[in-house]
Each structure stands twice: as C-alpha cells, then as structure tokens.
C-alpha cells in the first residue's frame, strides 16, 4: 500500500515565538498513502507544526515541499487549494450554518462559476449550484450525515461535529489530510467509530494522513509510523512497537525514572 513517493516533505522546520523555540529542525517525509502519527507531551509543538505547514503562521526557517513544489510562504488558502486540508484541535465548524453549507463552503474553490454568474443567475450558475449541492449531499451520505444536512452545525453532538469537520476537510479534495487530535473528548465507542472512519477515508480518498493524537490506543493501533516530539524537537521515530519500547519516549512522557522504581 505504501509507495515510496513522498507527498509532503518538511525540512529543518524551525519556529521561534520571540525567544521561545516552539519547533526546532523538524524533519518529516510523508510517503504517499501513509498514516503517520505525531505524538508528544502537551506543548511539544505538534499543533505548531500543523499551523506552519498549512501557512496559518509564518515559519522562521526551513522548507515545506508538497510534491516538488515549495509551499512555505504561500497564503493558507492557496496551500489548501493545492491539496493539504486539516481539522482543528478545538472543533472549528461554521457553527451558525447548516451542515450542508459547511461542506459547500469547502467546495467554494471548485465552484466553477464567478461573481458575475451568481449576480446574474446565469444557467451556468443554476447548473453548477445543483451539481455542487448534489455532490455535497452524496458526500455527506458517505459519512452517514445526509439526514443532518439541514441541521445547524452548532446543534450537533460532539462526535457528529468531529465527523462533519473531517467531512468538510475532505470536501477540499486534499491529497494530504492533517488531523489534529480527532479523538479528543470522545468516549470509547466514538473512538472506535473514528478509527474505522480514518481507515475508511484513507482507502476511499487515497489520502496521506498525518495525525496528532493523545489517545495512545488510537495512535498505536492505526498509525504505521510515529514521530515523537518533545520541547519542539523530534526525539524518536519508528513503528508503534519501536516507540513503545523507546526509553527516551517513556522518559518524555513519564519523567526520568528513579533507579529501580521503573522496574517495580
């Protein structure tokens, strides 16, 4: 499944907030079709990496390559249009709009008609708008959300909101999906459903997924490879098994063991 072609490559990514080094010399090469985990204790700089890659905050130094193209320094919406979509740690739906509109907004760059078409209501507008809506409804039905299409996003339960957010990110037609703690605040049953969903969307949309997660159960069971960060630096990378046995990682999470106490 995993081919050798690299979709997203991050080289020596560094970000300073004033004197604070939030991310330091971060390297990552995501092969096509990978499901890659990014973990680390709170404040390790994981979300900052996402924000840097998607252009929401400017990077201090380093390079981000998408395919062969350098994308650092582009506007966030340009990066999204190239094919990198993301979700947010604290859900950021367009809460006063319907679920359908949330998805249709993500279709906006592919709307296929201009301002003049919409102001004059040309046949092109009517046609494209109908296609767009049908496409969005079909899309929602993949996520079993079609019944909620006209519901205001704010009124959905938490788990559903997560689903809508993932659906909306996928509506951007990305090649790479960045998921920021998708399982946060979910109960065990919802987490199992989510893990199935992530597997499903990767196969269905041929995605490459980079995942930030705190729930070890999720990361260890679905990610093929994991990068571990602490204080802005990569401290380990490898398969879940390797990470579980890695002494540095255990120390980062649990602190340095006093001799003997770890054994007991």
């Amino acid at each position: 499944m995993t081919s050798t072609r690299t979709v997203l490559e991050i080289r020596e990514l560094t970000k300073f907030f004033g004197g604070l080094c939030a991310v330091k010399n971060f390297n990552l090469a995501l092969p096509q079709g990978a499901l890659w985990g990014l973990i680390g204790p709170n404040g390790a700089g994981k979300t900052t990496v996402f924000n840097l890659v998607t252009g929401l905050i400017p990077l201090s130094s380093g390079e981000v390559l998408f395919g062969a193209e350098r994308i650092d320094g582009l506007e966030p919406h340009e990066i999204t249009r190239l094919g990198i979509a993301r979700t947010f740690q604290n859900i950021r739906l367009f809460s006063n709009l319907s679920v359908l509109d949330n998805v249709r907004i993500a279709y906006h760059p592919h709307a296929g008609y201009g301002l003049s078409d919409s102001l004059l209501r040309t046949p092109k507008f009517t046609l494209r708008e109908k296609e767009l809506t049908e496409e969005a409804l079909e899309f929602l039905s993949i996520f079993k959300l079609e019944g909620l299409a006209e519901e205001t996003a704010r009124n959905l339960p938490y788990g559903e909101q997560r689903r809508v957010e993932i659906a909306r990110a996928l509506a951007c037609k990305p090649q790479v999906l960045l998921l920021d703690e998708p399982a946060a605040g979910m109960n065990p049953r919802e987490i199992i459903a989510l893990m199935e969903l992530i597997h499903f969307i990767r196969d269905r949309f041929k995605l490459t997924i980079l995942l930030i997660e705190h729930q070890m159960r999720v990361v260890m069971s679905i990610c093929e490879r994991i990068t571990v960060m602490d204080f802005g630096e990569v401290i380990a990378r490898g398969t879940p098994k390797e990470i579980q046995d890695n002494q540095t990682v255990i120390e980062a999470y649990l602190g340095k063991g006093v001799a003997g106490s770890a054994a007991g």
Binding site: T54, P76, H77, T80, A85, S95, I105, A106, H108, C172
Partner: peptide, 13 residues
C-alpha cells in the same frame, strides 16, 4: 463564522 477555519477551507479571507 470563523476566519481561521475559512482560511483552512481554501477561502481567500
């Protein structure tokens, strides 16, 4: 609704 989310959805804010 949300400028940051709009940017992330490819909207030229």
């Amino acid at each position: 609704e949300d400028e940051i989310a709009a940017k992330a959805m490819g909207i030229n804010v």
